[in-house]
Nucleic acid binder design. Structure first.
Lengths: 192, 192
DNA sequence: GATTGGACCCTAGCACCGCTAGACAAGCGA
DNA sequence: TCGCTTGTCTAGCGGTGCTAGGGTCCAATC
């Protein structure tokens, strides 16, 4: 059995390598540069090996998205944990979210823009995605205000951050005023 | 001279045909189905003809974006014109914006998601794009509130709508609650 | 009206993409 | 030691955006 275990270990290790390499390449040169040929060359295997781990390129994107989602949830929780008071937590959350998006654009795209073949907002949504939303909900739910469902408020605040993140990065919003935009959102949307 | 004029007319007409066909194909089957081969076949010319009008596929997307941008500005102005009072105008604007995004997903993507080689938020930004932003500014600028620049407020409100539009369409926000989300934004962000 | 020049368009092909069939080698169990 | 399974690679399919080069047709000139 030991042989089989070793093989499984090595296989799992190679899968991690594929995902890490795809992510690295995407962050360095953008997702359009992540081709199966380049990816195979970087991990020093032939193309078909990729397909013994993933159904296709889409699933690789999905794997990066799940990994990134876990990290984002952690980043948001870490930022909100040290803040005192509901509004301060929301402010910290917003900064952390946009900071993550700016520092990890390719990962952010994998989670929120590209098609990674993942189910969103459903029962069979992968746990990391659910948990990332939960991380937002923890700080945003408490400032939804009367008559507004915490989930709905979280969705709207999240969507606003998403809009700022994506429009800024694509150059459709002038760069540099992000902090002012965050303050406007944090001032007006939440209710103590 | 008449011959040359006729040729120029025909050439302009063919260019319109290319843009219209690209748009139609994109709305029918998505932008990934808009290939230069299919596009050429539909307009009943060979591929290289496309390149005598546009530098490449990107520029065709850009042309669709400019056309759509003009339409969106008109749609927003039409919706806000009949509304009475600042908040009602904002509400009408939000509905019109999301309605346009939902009815013309491919055009919306050309304007706000894809790379059409256009300059945004700069001096040399094409007029239709500037005007679309101006259309938003006309109704949103008046509810920015004290100490908030109308442009900044418009950017933030727009980004929020953009987030709702894109996350909903990609299935990352559950469908159906759009009206509630709009009301939340319209209730909280503007200041009379 | 014939000739010539140039504008115009098409065929064919480049390098690349995601993905897969089938040959082949390596290593395990009998 | 042999047979077989498992795993990997080479090669190739149909597609992509884009372009070089040849041929055709038509307008202007003599």
């Amino acid at each position: 059995m030991s042989v089989q275990e070793r093989k499984e270990r090595e296989r799992a290790e190679r899968e991690r390598l594929i995902v890490a390499t795809a992510r690295e390449l995407a962050e360095q040169q953008g997702w359009e540069a992540v081709t199966t040929r380049r990816l195979a060359e970087r991990i020093e295997y032939s193309q078909p090996v990729l397909y013994s781990h993933f159904r296709g390129k889409r699933e690789i994107i999905g794997a990066v998205a799940l990994q990134g989602s876990t990290e984002m949830a952690a980043a948001v929780r870490a930022a909100t944990a040290t803040a005192v008071g509901p509004r301060a937590r929301v402010h910290a959350l917003a900064r952390a979210y946009l900071d993550f998006a700016e520092r990890n654009p390719a990962v952010y795209d994998a989670i929120f823009q590209l098609d990674g073949g993942l189910a969103y907002a459903q029962e069979d949504t992968p746990e990391p995605l659910k948990d990332a939303f939960a991380a937002l909900l923890e700080s945003l739910g408490e400032v939804a205000g009367n008559g507004i469902a915490p989930g709905l408020f979280t969705e709207v605040f999240w969507a606003s951050l998403h809009g700022v993140a994506t429009l800024t990065r694509s150059g459709r919003l002038p760069p540099g005023d992000t902090e002012a935009r965050v303050e406007l959102l944090v001032d007006r949307l939440p209710v103590d």
